[in-house]
């Protein structure tokens, strides 16, 4: 709970209140639970990946171009998110806002291409009910996409609070926590990139 405290001037703003410190630690632990959640989805996907029934093979429909655009957008957004937190630590609200809004733009771009890709797959005759393999694909990748969507709304809400209240120990802890979340989604994407798309295409095209 928040107390007025004395601290080292080098302590980042987000760590200056007791609430901030507790919330950040709690969020790290929550990310541990998220790792367990995604690990379960990955394991499910890998068990089911060859069970395509009468539907198309996964690698058959994957497209390199869309994959690379999505990957580029999301990885860049993680970098700009890092820049935003860097600006926050310099107490530069404008810089924080600017880089975070760029991050959100890149996140929206990622979602646009992901949705396009899903629509393309559905058009080609692969949807969540086509086969066990496609169920695994849509739910794993879709859960990640749902996380990104949630993240976009969440970051927007936090930015509104920063705009209204400025940078305080409370608002800066919120920004920092959303940044942890955003980077985590980036990490998950790297696993999806490898385990779903690369392996899928290599298995299919040899």
């Amino acid at each position: 709970m928040a107390h007025a405290e004395t601290h080292d001037p080098n302590t980042p703003l987000e760590y200056r209140s007791e609430t901030g410190r507790l919330n950040i630690l709690g969020f790290w632990i929550f990310l541990g639970a998220e790792v367990a959640l995604f690990a379960t989805l990955f394991a499910t996907y890998m068990v089911l990946t060859h069970r395509i029934a009468d539907g198309p093979a996964l690698g058959e429909l994957f497209e390199v171009k869309s994959l690379l655009i999505q990957t580029f957008l999301l990885l860049t957004s993680s970098f700009t998110c890092g820049l935003a937190v860097h600006e926050m630590r310099r107490h530069n609200v404008k810089g924080l806002m600017l880089w975070m809004i760029i991050t959100l733009g890149l996140g929206l771009g990622f979602l646009y291409f992901e949705i396009q890709e899903f629509l393309h797959f559905i058009h080609e005759g692969a949807n969540i009910g086509t086969s066990a393999a496609w169920s695994g694909f849509f739910v794993l990748v879709g859960t990640h996409g749902a996380h990104v969507t949630f993240g976009i709304f969440w970051v927007t809400m936090v930015l509104i609070q920063v705009a209204k209240r400025g940078l305080t120990p409370a608002t800066s802890a919120k920004v920092f926590i959303t940044s942890l979340y955003w980077h985590f989604l980036d990490v998950v994407w790297i696993f999806i990139f490898t385990a779903v798309y690369l392996m899928g295409m290599v298995m299919h095209h040899g």
Partner: peptide
């Protein structure tokens, strides 16, 4: 999802497991 949206994670059809 299996029950509501017709996915095939655990079903007998669609090579679910």
């Amino acid at each position: 999802f299996d029950r509501l949206f017709g996915s095939h994670f655990f079903t007998l059809q669609g090579e679910g497991m």
